[in-house]
């Protein structure tokens, strides 16, 4: 069963130069106990998508249309009161830069307990015990519950964020670049934690990253975004072994791997378009080495090919 379904979602940023089409008619769904990876470069609309799911899009951003069906109900038509009961309990988010997301004047234990008490009517002591259990779950000793965020390292703060996000047994959790900006070894420890939690808590999650390898290690399915559009969707093994879209292929061919044979890397010419004036036709065509005239004129629709969903004219 799909926990989350995004239908024809459009989010625009209204700028002085005109609307920037940050998310332009995207569709995808996340099934129960599955992790979907959303991959793309900065400015491709992945974080905007995450914010739209939480209905957190702020001025000058605006949700221009579409539906976000969470457990059968459309988030976009919910009232603020309904959203309050949803956010933080059933639907949660782990954002990048945990140091800015945590409250600097509250202990980590209090911040977890606060979330639990906000959504469940239990006394302070039980909530505190639950908070301590949460900390143990994410690999911070419960003795650190009375620590303030500045007393914790970057990796521990991010663990704290995960503890908060999983405190009320959420049905859906969004992880927006949870390991970006941390040291390699800390990244590896967090990836291990996330994979453990996926098993232990049967998480249903959307995992956002700009790095395909991080998605490969944590996700079941992958959605590839470029300049506000979905280019390709497939399960993670098939996407890596048989990428269909030229952009996905280019991402894989330009990925410097540390293991195995040293392959010849192919760079992608040009740079991502400005979303105020995206190229006509397929948004990837100015950088695509296979582009034909049709790509320059007509935006490709998403089609089903070999079990992938792909938006490209030249894929047979």
């Amino acid at each position: 069963m799909a926990i989350l379904e995004i239908k024809d979602l459009k989010v625009h940023y209204l700028t002085k130069e005109g609307p920037a089409l940050a998310v332009d008619s995207i569709n995808f769904s996340v099934k129960e106990n599955k992790t979907v990876g959303l991959i793309g470069e900065s400015g491709c609309g992945k974080t905007t998508t995450a914010r739209a799911i939480m209905k957190f899009v702020k001025e000058p951003g605006k949700i221009m249309g579409g539906e976000i069906i969470f457990k059968g109900r459309d988030i976009l038509t919910m009232s603020d009161k309904e959203l309050r009961t949803l956010r933080g309990a059933e639907l949660t988010i782990v954002r990048q830069e945990a140091q800015n997301a945590l409250n600097p004047v509250m202990t980590i234990g209090d911040q977890i307990a606060e979330v639990i008490r906000e959504h469940e009517h239990i006394d302070k002591r039980t909530a505190w015990e639950r908070a301590e259990n949460q900390l143990d779950l994410v690999g911070i000793s419960h003795h650190r519950a009375k620590s303030f965020p500045h007393e914790l390292s970057g990796g521990m703060r991010q663990r704290g964020m995960i503890a908060i996000a999983t405190a009320c047994n959420p049905d859906f959790i969004i992880m927006d670049e949870p390991i970006t900006g941390l040291d390699v070894i800390v990244q590896r420890q967090l990836l291990t934690l996330i994979n453990d939690l996926r098993e232990k808590l049967n998480l249903t999650a959307l995992f956002i990253a700009h790095d395909l390898s991080v998605i490969s290690e944590t996700c079941d399915d992958v959605v590839v975004m470029y300049a506000g559009k979905i280019m390709e969707k497939a399960d993670v093994v098939s996407l890596y072994k048989h990428p269909l879209h030229p952009y996905t292929q280019a991402l894989i061919n330009s990925y410097p791997s540390i293991r195995g044979e040293k392959k010849n890397l192919v760079s992608i010419p040009g740079s991502p378009p400005r979303l105020v004036s995206p190229p006509k036709g397929c948004r990837f065509h100015p950088r695509c080495s296979f582009a034909i005239d049709r790509c320059r004129e007509e935006a490709p629709e998403i089609r089903e090919v070999d079990g992938h969903s792909v938006a490209c004219h030249i894929v047979k």
């Binding site: 990244q187 490969s216 890596y240």
Partner: peptide, 10 residues
């Protein structure tokens, strides 16, 4: 350090 680098092949 080498073992910590994420692997692209799922």
């Amino acid at each position: 350090l080498i073992a910590a680098v994420p692997e692209i092949d799922p």
